[in-house]
């Protein structure tokens, strides 16, 4: 079923909306949730929470890209859940994304002069992403949105894991430079 039809089902408050959403996006949702949470049980719970959240917000919202809409909710719920669950043990690390790795994306505070608001940072990241070829965009998003492992990304893109890793490392460095150039401080 296409997205438009599924959204219509949400508007009609038909529970089939969730069934159809699950049919179409369930696998992606569970996979992403598992990448972040590392547990099938948690990812199932997170996916179900996502559907409920989607149910709550459509209507009134009418997303133009249902898939992205669902994934965004799912991912944010998963990250929240991860932070909550791992607060004691590891202080909220991301399943396959290390702190060092994220730090490489962020500008060093000494090197910039001005501060930008959250919206500006997001736009700066999007601007950087827009300059990337599609493969690299996918790599970046799979890594930092979906928290996929290098191996998963490599498999999806028919590349070696080493290439993905190397490529992501360069992207992180470039993003940091880009953010610094834009005068961003996080």
């Amino acid at each position: 079923m296409n997205d438009e039809k599924i959204i219509e089902l949400y508007f009609a408050r038909s529970e089939n909306a969730i069934t159809e959403t699950d049919k179409k996006y369930g696998e992606s949702c569970r996979k992403t949730a598992y990448s972040i949470l590392g547990s099938h049980e948690d990812s199932e719970e997170c996916t179900n929470d996502t559907y409920l959240k989607v149910w709550d917000v459509i209507p009134p919202q009418r997303p133009t890209k249902l898939g992205a809409f669902v994934m965004r909710i799912l991912r944010n719920l998963a990250i929240d859940l991860l932070r909550h669950r791992t607060a004691f043990k590891s202080g909220g690390g991301y399943c396959s994304v290390g702190y060092d790795e994220i730090a490489e994306c962020l500008p060093s505070s000494e090197s910039v002069e001005s501060t930008a608001d959250r919206n500006a940072v997001r736009k700066a990241i999007e601007k950087y992403l827009s300059s990337l070829p599609r493969d690299k965009k996918i790599m970046f998003m799979k890594r930092y949105f979906s928290c996929c492992t290098y191996a998963e990304i490599a498999e999806g893109l028919n590349m070696t894991e080493g290439k993905v890793k190397m490529s992501l490392q360069r992207m992180r460095e470039k993003l940091r430079e880009h953010l610094e150039k834009e005068g961003i401080v996080i």
């Binding site: 992606s28 992403t32 997303p63 965004r72 962020l106 997001r122 998003m141």
Partner: peptide, 20 residues
């Protein structure tokens, strides 16, 4: 900062999220 970064990634445009 790391958390903020990860949150920001979650707020990117749908076109990027669709890539996942």
């Amino acid at each position: 900062r790391e958390d903020i970064f990860m949150d920001l990634i979650g707020e990117l445009d749908d076109n990027y999220i669709a890539l996942t």
